[in-house]
């Protein structure tokens, strides 16, 4: 490092390589990403937001909601579940006898008790879950054995992890979920719960509005500040507004007054309700609950 030029070159190369790696390469890899297809369907994901929800993202950005809320779900693993859907021409008792023959197989030996317990007292009702919380190899082997004797089964993939157990999502968040977000508001702190699927978790717009106006009116131990300035308290006119909030007594407006959301509040709620991330994708597979019927 004898001359200014050598410092310049060292710094230039160092920053230049990371610029290529973390600015240029992601732009090339993801900058022209398109919608993907939802697993086992022909539907596209994600869809463009409606007008109100698009404006709502700007409200979310302007009030810095991402300072306390993340929009990304983490997943620690996947579990597989084998469910019996049809016994073919077998009788339940025969089938129970048949499962005992499976227990000697090396892959399934560890699940002897689990399978025996799930079939204990079973009267033949379907669908019947045989194996839970297992890995892919065991689930595949089980399904193959059942198929060989003419019994039909379905294998479900279930994403696991604390975020998912809390009901914050059905799977991990992936790049595709954020395709149309301008700006993407991932967030970095969970002073409030994750919002990646708040539109699935709390789909009632009135609940969302009441929560924005007075968080404690719907979640008593909430630490969220109230966003009263997104609402208008006004005298009830000739007839009460259909949009007026229906709040518990201690939060409600005085007699003769009503609390009505301003446009920004309605847009913000439209945005929150648009947050779903509840479909399986190639890079984040899971079996939706409805498909297991």
């Amino acid at each position: 490092m004898k001359t200014g030029l050598s410092i310049f070159i060292a710094a230039f190369i160092a920053l230049g390589t990371s610029w290529c790696g973390f600015v240029l390469a992601p732009l090339l890899q993801l900058g022209s990403a398109q919608q993907t297809v939802i697993l086992q369907t022909t539907d596209n994901w994600p869809l463009q937001r409606t007008g109100a929800a698009t404006l709502g993202l700007q409200v979310y950005r302007a009030y810095g909601c991402a300072a306390c809320h993340t929009e990304q779900v983490r997943q620690t693993g996947s579990a597989f579940e084998v469910t019996l859907t049809s016994l073919g021409n077998q009788k339940p008792a025969d089938f129970i006898e048949f499962t005992k023959s499976l227990f000697v197989l090396p892959g399934l030996a560890n699940y002897t008790n689990a399978i025996a317990a799930s079939l204990n007292g079973w009267n033949g009702g379907l669908p019947k879950t045989l194996l839970t919380a297992t890995d892919k190899d065991v689930a595949t082997e089980m399904a193959d054995r059942l198929k060989a004797v003419g019994v039909k089964s379905e294998t479900a993939i279930i994403a696991t992890g604390p975020d998912i157990a809390r009901g914050w999502g059905s799977r991990l968040s992936v790049a595709a979920d954020f395709l149309y977000d301008q700006p993407v508001q991932l967030g970095s702190l969970r002073a409030g719960p994750d919002l990646a699927n708040i539109g699935v978790r709390a789909p009632d717009a009135n609940w969302q509005l009441a929560h924005l106006y007075a968080p404690k009116s719907v979640t008593p131990n909430s630490t969220m500040p109230s966003f009263k300035f997104l609402f208008e308290v006004r005298k009830v006119g000739a007839s009460p507004s259909p949009e007026a909030l229906n709040l518990p007594k201690e939060f409600a407006a005085a007699d003769g007054f009503e609390i009505v959301p301003k446009p920004a509040a309605k847009q913000l709620v439209a945005y929150l309700l648009s947050l779903k991330a509840n479909v399986p994708l190639y890079e984040a597979p899971f079996t939706p609950a409805t498909a297991a019927k």
């Binding site: 992601p26 790049a175 301008q182």
Partner: peptide, 20 residues
């Protein structure tokens, strides 16, 4: 130039550049 403009890069390219 990339993150403070009217047309932002698509999806998660934004946070990647932001983290960088």
């Amino acid at each position: 130039i990339l993150l403070n403009s009217h047309q932002l890069p698509r999806g998660v390219v934004q946070p990647i550049i932001g983290w960088w």
